[in-house]
Design a binder for these strands. Sequence first.
DNA 1: CCCTGATTCGC
DNA 2: GCGAATCAGG
Length: 234
Amino acid sequence: MSWTDERIATLKKMWESGSTASQIADELGGVSRNAVIGKAHRLGLKSRPSPVKASESKAAKKPTSAAPKPVPKKAAPAAATPAAPVAPRQPVTPPAPTQAPPPAPKAASSAPSQPMPNPSSDLPKIVSVGPGGFLRQGPGDQQAPIPPAPPRRLVPAKPSPEIANKTSLLDLSDRVCRWPMGHPGEPDFHFCGEAVNPGFPYCVEHCGRAYQAQLPRGARRPPPPLPFGGPRVR
DNA sequence: CCCTGATTCGC
DNA sequence: GCGAATCAGG
């Protein structure tokens, strides 16, 4: 397999969306996890939370009867780049997913920032995150286990006033829709915040998305295009 | 053991 | 440029 533009695009997309190299490799097919990682690095994609990165802050070696183990293999041309103030890696405070304005946390709703009009109007491209933490695509994505009993009655949840602002993680409660809007990590990531459909974690509208009727085997709509609808949901 | 990503290095 | 082999942490 070769790295076509499309495959690279998918790689980038998935990599940036947090998919693991294995998932990406699986999605692309014909390539190994290593290939994906290798390619990702060659593409200059920044490294993501790796389990192998905790080695820091400890100058403690293994003196005990063990050689300092200078260089395992290739010797790096140290003198090559003299002035390279490589930052020793700061403790970097990760940017909060939800923008938290230090002053005046939740007030001044006078900000004319669009208070999310109709959630369903911007579905075409949006990729939301389901409860499991996996990404899901708006239209026509698979839904494995058919969950709970259908709602007895759909109550017309009316726009609650408490969502004049964006509903952040901290704003979640038993009464507001927990449906994620956007991607975690993105500056505008937030939750629906609509009044929930009683008995469900989501509003009526998102209940419709979360709990979809299981279509007959034959009548299932396969997602052929799939430029990458999200990580496998197997 | 499984998983993860990082790195190396022969091709 | 590619990716298997290897490394190393969780």
